[in-house]
Structures are given as structure tokens and as C-alpha cells.
Design a protein around this nucleic acid. Structure first.
Length: 824
DNA sequence: AGCACGCCGACT
DNA sequence: GTCGGCGTGCTC
């Protein structure tokens, strides 16, 4: 219901349906106190109490006059915003996400709003002003009281850690009953505008005569005179100038400024400033599109006339970015907004810098490395239209666009567009297509190796298709070679993990002072430790996985839950000292390499070496500045990085990719290998790619070498057709979890049976997933494979209802079920 | 999510 | 007996 508050007479009682930022199945209704009738509006945030204590900011979704039938609604405590922070279009979009990905509206709200816009209360305890004369207190109560007498307030969490126990409310409540303390809910407004001091000259001195007198007056205070001169020079027509800038540029010092302020010659005022640095300059990067690019651009625009979505299949280095820039320019020329989605990892790289340079302060960047205050500012700037272009990762689709004209999804095949853990488990590329549709915007999906789904959509003419096959500026394709590890092993030519071919290539590149990137899709030092005597391998205590040995920490780590323990030299099972390392990761490669090439400077790029905020940026820029000769990395090295001086790319072991048990494994291997290969040799020199593999005659490797995407697509599509995988069907995974393996087995079987009763052979499983226990929860998976022609919404309704009924059964109440639509 | 309520094992 | 952990239900 979309009714403006002003449509109601002042004394009418209003009720609002609100979304809470929690994973709840329904929305809740609150009553609006009369005095807020005027200011309440859809899309504004309100402060409400939810449950016994907690206070949250909820979002007004609709306003009505009918009171709820079966309960007394609580009052809205306050209205937070002067203007709506969520637009009607967003609510519409959220509803689509809820119904398509089968999650709750609160999940979407929690994911969409930056934390700064989601205040929640914290319970704090305060001493009661009038203390009772005689009370009996036990030791714990006395302890709390003592602390309170010292610091006047204490939070519930602090009480818990003070007493060293989890249950604290009985004690707290007893203290309240004894009238010793009171509890209060403190709402912390998390967003704090950044305040900076600004200096302004008293308007009195704007008169020339007064100013002359002031100069005379300050003659004996040279520092103050400096400050005044500095101010006059900097201020020009602006009244306020930043205090630190004045001090720095005039060299007047704090004291002089303070003296002037005390004399009321200057006024100092704190004003909110933006954290988002913008130099405000718009660079005129005047580039010309090549003939091929211009042709492709024309085709895109042509296709946009009758298609809303166009897939741009452009080989690596074909200059897709320039096309995007032209399209963005056209879209914003008439005042519209543009969303440019990139995989998270690519956001720290050159492409962003290039586009930022080009569009100046019209552009906002949004990704997970931004802190919360910055995100709130971006949110507001998108909402009020200050940003016309937003460059962002997955979650940027949830920003409050007003007038979206174009959506660009670069590297559309990247699986990081799919959110896996918490709900909403959405695919940002697909959501972007829907968002585009809501705004009647055009959508362009770009990739050198499109996802099978998108390419299929283009082939059946659901999407437009534009091919860009020419490498920009005549960049040559790299020389590619495949080396059989098996063969080299047989001939005893392997040098640790390197075939003689790769080792020679590396030596040659180093000789020529060119850089090398080595790709190994596994981090850590050795994959696992294994006892050569009894076969024992240390496993995680919380998860069903073997631990990985990390040499830098000297510990065994679990990559699923973060558990780690010290390493073992002696087998705990049989006492044998023959504990061996099996498999190898990036760390191990790094070490082996430094033995073979002791003079080479080697860096490593993986999750472990990039934990800190600027870790990755540092490693990348060091490599760009040629501080290192060789960069070893996981997938990270493949994505969006351009290094001018890299002449050799080595793939240590392609088999680990190909052998991944997933129906998309071959497609992904192709994409990854093609992308890795694309990193070699830009501009003038021809690069080299060396792929090591046991399965050296694998068709995927051949197709990568031949740069034959089309053939890969045909082969894969045939496989998918035969085995009824997407795009010929839709998949929904249902993950069932429980702490007790027996309960889980029964539960998963029961749920599968219940589903099968209604959906028949579309239901597969329950199956044991690759990792069957994570963080102490056992996991089973039920898979729904639904034919393209089925009524999807009906199937989803059946699914949700069945799970609801299942969870209502006594024995299965504590069973956790997660639905993952279109898993990746 | 986070709190209350109620059941049940461990410890003074 | 009582304290505290843990499972379950509910929140407008």
C-alpha cells in the first residue's frame, strides 16, 4: 500500500508494517503515535522495540489504518530519517530477491543497508540514584555493584565476562528487583560524520577600512599576520577554509590561530566533511576506439534497440573497458545512473583507477574493504544522485538507485557474483538483469569466457550477442605449451614440482629481467600430513577435512572453520616418525623455487598473504614496480591484473582444477586457464604460457591452447543436456545441518521423502557433500533438479511449505535447513 | 538475532 | 538442593 502520511487526517491512528534487519519470516506491525503522523513515510527508518528489551531500527514498508486483529501493536518510538532512505523500486527488487532466492525480507535488508544505517540497542546497567538502605547481596551481585560504583555503567556483555558465565539475566533481574540498579537501552548511532575544523574571518573585516586597521594592529605579531595573509590568500571567494590547510600553508602555528580566534577575528567551526576523497578533477583521457571496437559499440547499441541484455564476448585485451566507458558516457549524458559490477578482487586494480580517473567525482566505488562510515556516505550519494556511476562488487546491486539507465557486469562468469553464506544467497549478475528490468535500464554482460548460461541465453536470442575477437593494439597471443608431468617424471627430468620445460622458461625470463607469474590453485605449504607407516592424517576437530600444514605459522590449519593446532612430528596413532607431506600449495612452491633460483625475488599472493587491508594492494604494486621477479599465487593472480613486464605464466598443475567434482569443473577450468594465459605478454612482446599437467591431452587444455571457446561451449552444453544440468534445468540445493549425525540422517531422509512425494524424481539425494561436517555441524544435501518448462514458482511454494511443515515436527525442530537457488 | 522459560546434569 | 548449560519458542 502506497499512501502518503498527509492523506490521513491528523487524529487518525496509523499502523506501519516494518521490515526488521533480522532473518524473520514475516514483517511486523507497529502503531504510530499521533505526533509522528506527519513525519512517518514509507522508506524511512523508525525506532521500535522488538522483544522484551531490544531496540532496532526498522524500515517502514507500508502505512495503513487497520489495527492488527489478534494483538495489541507496540508504538513506534521515533522516526529516524527526514527523507526515505530506501526507494519504492528497492522494495520491489527486495521482493523479487525474497521470492526467487527463497529468503526473508530481513535478510535482504540486513545485506543491503550499511551497518551504519542499522542501529541496534545495547542493554546497559546503571546504579539507581536512590540506593535502598538495607539489601542482602550475594558475592556476584556485590561484584557488579563494585564495578558500577567505579565506572557508573556496565553492559550486559561486560557483566558476562566479569562473572565468567553465559547466563547473566537472573542476576541482573535480581539486582533490578532489589532496586539497586536500573537497566537502560542505549542506541548507538553508528554513523558519525567526519568533522573537520574550518576557519572563517569575522565579516567585520571584509570592509576594506577595517581590514587595514587589522593589519596595523597585527604588525607586532608576525605569526598572526602570517595567518591572516594565509587566510586571505586561500579563501578567495570561499568563506570557510580548512584549519589544517591554513596552518600548514601559512606556517602560522596553532598558537597564533588560537590568539586570533580568542580576539574574535577568526571563527573556528567544526563541519562535516566527506570521507570519500575526490580530487574533483576530471581527466580528459581522450582515447579513440579502434575500428573493431567502434563496430562492436555500434552493434551493442543496435542490439539494445530490441534487447534489454547484451552479452559482450570479447577476448582478453580486446579493450572491453573502453567500450564500457563509451556506453557509460552515453548513459549519464542525459542525467541517468550507471551500475558497474566487478568481481571483488578486480576492484583494487587498474581498471577501477582508469575509470575513476575518467569520470572524476561523479563516480563512487563500493566494496567490502570500505569501512562502514564510508559506505553510509556512498549510500546517500547514490540516493540523492550525487553519484551517477557506481563501481562495485556484488552488494552494489542493492544500492538505492533512482534512475538507472545502464548496468555493466564485467567478468560476468565469475562465481564470486554468487553469495553463498549468509542469506540472501543471490547471484548478483542475475539480480542485476532483474534490477535493470525494473528500471528499464539496459544491461551489458562482458567476459572473455562467458558463463555457459549467459552464452546459451545469447544463442537462443534471449540476450543480444556482440563478439570482439580482435586483440587491441595488435597484442599478440602468447605462445602456449603443455608439458606432461607424467612423461617428465618417467624421464626423471622433474626438478621438484617443475618440469624441465618450465624451469628453463623461468631461468630464461629471469635472465632477460622479465617477470614471471606462477599459478597454483591451492594455498598453504603441503596439502596434508600423512603417516607413511599407518596412513593416519590429522583432521580438523570441527570439520570433516584434513588439516593443511602452513609453514609460516608452523601450524596445521583448517580452511573451513579457522581451527588450527600445532604440527606433528610423531604420528599420534602409531608413534611412527615417518610423517610425510602430501600435495603442495603456494607456500611450498615458493620455498622450492627459492632453492632452485636463489637470486630471484619471490612474492606470494593468496588469501594468507593478503589478510590485512592493504596486503594485496601492497603485493600487487610491489610486483608492478618490479620489486619482485616471480609472483606465485592462487586464482587471485588470474583476475583483472595487468602486468606490463610479465613474459611467462606457469600453471603448476592443471589437474587439480579439472578433477574438481562439480558439473561446472571443466567450464571453470577453461575460464581460469584462459584467464591466466591472458595475463602473459601485453603490448609489444609476445608472452609465453606453460601449463603443466598429468592429463596433458585433456580436451579442455587443448581448447584453452587453441583459444577455442566455441568448441568448449558446444562440448559442455552437450554434457549439460545429457545429464540435465543448467541451462537445461534449474538447480536448488537444500543443505540440511545438525549437530547429531543420526538425527541428521533421519531428518535428511525424511525431508527428501516428503519432497519426493510431491516433486517426484526431481528430488535427488540426500547426498553426502564433499565436506560433510563443518563447525561441528553434520551436513547432508538434497538437490532439486527442475526442468526448464516447470512452473518454477509453484515448485518453490511446494518446497517452502514442505520445509516449514518438516521443521514444525518435534524431532526436527533443531534441524537447520538452508535453501540455495541456482547454486554456483 | 537475542531473550525467557523450562529441563537436566554437576557440584557445594 | 541449586546453579548454569542448553534446547525451544516468540518477538507486532
Amino acid at each position: 500500500m502506497q499512501i502518503a502520511a498527509s492523506d490521513f487526517s491528523e487524529r487518525e491512528t496509523l499502523f506501519v508494517e516494518v521490515v526488521l534487519p533480522l532473518s524473520l519470516a514475516i514483517n511486523y506491525t507497529y502503531r504510530v503515535p499521533f505526533e509522528l503522523n506527519e513525519v512517518i513515510a514509507v522508506g524511512k527508518r523508525v525506532v521500535v522495540q522488538f522483544g522484551k528489551h531490544k531496540i532496532y531500527t526498522a524500515l517502514v514498508k507500508s502505512i495503513g489504518t487497520t489495527p492488527p486483529e489478534h494483538y495489541q501493536a507496540k508504538y513506534v518510538i521515533d522516526v529516524v530519517d527526514d527523507y526515505p532512505v530506501v526507494t519504492p523500486k528497492q522494495f520491489e527488487f527486495w521482493e523479487w530477491i525474497v521470492s526467487y532466492y527463497l529468503c526473508n525480507e530481513g535478510d535482504v535488508m540486513a545485506a543491503a543497508l550499511p551497518t551504519g544505517l542499522k542501529l541496534a540497542s545495547e542493554t546497559v546497567l546503571l546504579l539507581k540514584e536512590e540506593q535502598p538502605e538495607e539489601v542482602e547481596l550475594n558475592d556476584k551481585e556485590k561484584l557488579i555493584l563494585e564495578v558500577l560504583q567505579k565506572q557508573h555503567r556496565i553492559s550486559i556483555d561486560e557483566v558476562a565476562s566479569l562473572l565468567g558465565q553465559k547466563t547473566v539475566y537472573p542476576i541482573v533481574n535480581s539486582l533490578i528487583a532489589k532496586e539497586v540498579i536500573v537497566a537502560a537501552e542505549e542506541v548507538v548511532d553508528k554513523y558519525k560524520p567526519l568533522l573537520k575544523s574550518f576557519v572563517k574571518l569575522n565579516v567585520f573585516y571584509l570592509e576594506e577600512e577595517n581590514l587595514r586597521q587589522l593589519f596595523a594592529q597585527l604588525e607586532k605579531a608576525p605569526k598572526q599576520l602570517d595567518a591572516l595573509l594565509g587566510y586571505l590568500k586561500l579563501s578567495k571567494d570561499k568563506g570557510y577554509i580548512p584549519k589544517n590547510q591554513l596552518i600548514e600553508e601559512s606556517g602560522c602555528g596553532q598558537a597564533a590561530l588560537k590568539a586570533l580566534t580568542d580576539k574574535e577575528i577568526f571563527y573556528v567551526e567544526k563541519r562535516p566533511v566527506s570521507r570519500l576523497s575526490s580530487d574533483g578533477e576530471i581527466f580528459d583521457v581522450n582515447f579513440k576506439l579502434s575500428e573493431h571496437q567502434q563496430a562492436a559499440l555500434d552493434q551493442v547499441n543496435q542490439q539494445f534497440e530490441h534487447k534489454d541484455v547484451v552479452l559482450l564476448h570479447g577476448v582478453t585485451a580486446s579493450g572491453k573497458t573502453q567500450l564500457y566507458i563509451k556506453l557509460i558516457e552515453e548513459a549519464i549524458a542525459t542525467g541517468g545512473q550507471v551500475l558497474f559490477l566487478l568481481p571483488e578482487i578486480a576492484l583494487t586494480t587498474q581498471i577501477v583507477a582508469r575509470i575513476k580517473l575518467y569520470f572524476g567525482n561523479k563516480i563512487g566505488v563500493y566494496h567490502s574493504k570500505f569501512n562502514d562510515n564510508e559506505r553510509v556516505e556512498i549510500w546517500n550519494k547514490v540516493l540523492n544522485g550525487a553519484y551517477q556511476v557506481v563501481l562495485g562488487a556484488r552488494s552494489a546491486v542493492l544500492l538505492p538507485f533512482n534512475d538507472l539507465r545502464l548496468v555493466v557486469v564485467d567478468e560476468e562468469h565469475e562465481n564470486s557474483y554468487k553469495q553463498y553464506d549468509p542469506a540472501p544467497r543471490y547471484q548478483a549478475r542475475d539480480a542485476a538483469v532483474v534490477l535493470g528490468h525494473l528500471h528499464q535500464a539496459k544491461v551489458i554482460l562482458g567476459s572473455a569466457t562467458p558463463s555457459l548460461e549467459s552464452y546459451y541465453n545469447a544463442k537462443i536470442e534471449k540476450y543480444g550477442l556482440v563478439e570482439l575477437n580482435e586483440r587491441f593494439g595488435g597484442v599478440q597471443l602468447p605462445l602456449q605449451e603443455v608439458v606432461s608431468i607424467a612423461e617428465e617424471t618417467k624421464r626423471k627430468k622433474m626438478v621438484s614440482y617443475f618440469t624441465s620445460v618450465l624451469a628453463d622458461d623461468i631461468a630464461e625470463a629471469l635472465e632477460k629481467k622479465e617477470q614471471v607469474i606462477l599459478f597454483q590453485n591451492r594455498r598453504g605449504y603441503a596439502t596434508i600430513l600423512i603417516c607413511a607407516t599407518c596412513g593416519y592424517a590429522p583432521k580438523c576437530v570441527n570439520c570433516d577435512v584434513s588439516l593443511t600444514y602452513h609453514k609460516s605459522s608452523g601450524k596445521l590449519h583448517c580452511h573451513y572453520c579457522g581451527y588450527h593446532q600445532s604440527s606433528i612430528n610423531v604420528c599420534p596413532a602409531c608413534g611412527s616418525v615417518h610423517v610425510e607431506q602430501k600435495g603442495f600449495g603456494t607456500e611450498r612452491i615458493e620455498e622450492e623455487l627459492s632453492l632452485i633460483f636463489p637470486d630471484a625475488k619471490i612474492a606470494r599472493l593468496d588469501l594468507d598473504s593478503t589478510r590485512t587491508k592493504n596486503g594485496m594492494q601492497q603485493i600487487i604494486s610491489d610486483f608492478q614496480e618490479k620489486k619482485n621477479d616471480i609472483l606465485i599465487g592462487t586464482q587471485m593472480v588470474a583476475k583483472g591484473l595487468d602486468f606490463e613486464n610479465v613474459s611467462l605464466i606457469g600453471v603448476i598443475n592443471a589437474d587439480t582444477l579439472l578433477n574438481f567434482p562439480d558439473f561446472r569443473a571443466f567450464e571453470r577450468s577453461y575460464q581460469l586457464l584462459a584467464q591466466v594465459a591472458g595475463r602473459a605478454g601485453r603490448r609489444d612482446k609476445q608472452g609465453k604460457v606453460c601449463i603443466q599437467a598429468y592429463a596433458d591431452d585433456h580436451r579442455i587444455i587443448k581448447q584453452v591452447i587453441d583459444n577455442n571457446y566455441e568448441q568448449m561451449y558446444e562440448d559442455e552444453l552437450e554434457e549439460r543436456r545429457q545429464f540435465h544440468y543448467p541451462p537445461f534445468s534449474r538447480l536448488i540445493f537444500i543443505n540440511v545441518k545438525h549437530k547429531d549425525a543420526n538425527v541428521l540422517n533421519l531428518a535428511a531422509q525424511t525431508l527428501a521423502n516428503n519432497l519426493r512425494a510431491q516433486l517426484g524424481k526431481r528430488v535427488l539425494g540426500p547426498e553426502q557433500p564433499l565436506v560433510s561436517r563443518v563447525r561441528n555441524y553434520y551436513i547432508k544435501q538434497i538437490i532439486l533438479k527442475i526442468e526448464r518448462t516447470a512452473a518454477m514458482q509453484k515448485v518453490k511454494t511446494v518446497l517452502v511449505d514442505t520445509i516449514r511443515d518438516f521443521n514444525a515436527q518435534k524431532d526436527f525442530r533443531s534441524v537447520i535447513t538452508q535453501i540455495d537457488v541456482d547454486p554456483y
